[in-house]
């Protein structure tokens, strides 16, 4: 059957084929049945904005498939990507729990299925299902660790080239595949988005990537990038 954007839509959490692999959704039957009752399923195209920084929290969003970028903006209009959220992650939970405005904006990077739970329903769900609290706490903790990692990378780097080297090393540690040509990464972000991850401009990223290529620190083939990890490590001062 044709589905929007060719997404294999999972309409029921209880029978979802990915449930056991997803940290948040891997809950007991009674808990997941209740979540099924209170969630709304939707499919979003690339570029859809789930929520905007400063907006009052309407509820939480569970990414069932696809990826989202979480961004924050400065008063001058600069944008910083604080995280690329993957399938299985819960977005907006901290604002929902505190009842304070969303701290970041969330925009889908590709066609995605997202489940939405209204804030009142989510809070009642947490109140009545301790298991959901544990899984939410693990999600919040993962977000905290991720933010700490980004703070370290941005705050401790002395130069923009060092920030870019740290970003590539971080990607290599998490998803790099070891090959004879170096650590291989699939890069699905634009130069603009890479710039927003390290708090610089698109022009600077394009210039640094050319410099890295010229020095044979990286090699780009299509959407794949091969990294020379020792050379990148040497660029990172601490």
């Amino acid at each position: 059957m044709n589905t929007p954007y060719n997404i294999d839509t999972q309409n029921h959490c209880e029978s979802c084929s990915f449930r056991s692999e997803r940290q948040f959704c891997n809950m007991g039957t009674a808990t997941i049945k209740r979540m099924d009752e209170i969630k709304f399923t939707a499919v979003y195209p690339k570029g859809s904005v789930l929520f905007v920084e400063g907006e009052q929290p309407r509820g939480v969003f569970i990414i069932c498939s696809g990826r989202a970028k979480l961004t924050t903006s400065s008063a001058e209009g600069k944008t910083l990507i604080v995280k690329i959220a993957e399938a299985g992650e819960v977005l907006g939970a901290s604002a929902g729990i505190l009842g304070t405005p969303y701290e970041v904006s969330a925009e889908m990077l590709e066609p995605s299925q997202v489940n939405f739970i209204r804030r009142e329903d989510f809070m009642a769900f947490l109140n009545s299902h301790p298991e959901a609290c544990l899984h939410t706490a693990q999600q919040l903790s993962a977000k905290y660790h991720s933010a700490q990692r980004e703070i370290r990378a941005l705050g401790l780097s002395q130069s923009t080239s060092e920030k870019l080297a740290r970003l590539f090393l971080d990607w290599s540690n998490r998803t790099g595949e070891t090959t004879a040509k170096g650590s291989r990464l699939k890069v699905l972000l634009t130069h603009e988005e890479i710039a927003q991850m390290i708090g610089t401009t698109r022009e600077t990223v394009t210039r640094l990537l050319s410099e890295f290529k010229r020095k044979k620190i990286i090699e780009v083939k299509g959407s794949s990038m091969f990294l020379q990890v020792p050379a990148l490590e040497a660029m990172v001062s601490i």
Partner: peptide, 22 residues
């Protein structure tokens, strides 16, 4: 959960500082 949420919000504030001020 509230304490963890507060920690995240504080971290995002630090992240903004590291990303925009520096």
């Amino acid at each position: 959960l509230r304490l963890l949420s507060q920690d995240i919000h504080a971290s995002y504030e630090s992240l903004r500082h590291a990303g925009f001020v520096r």
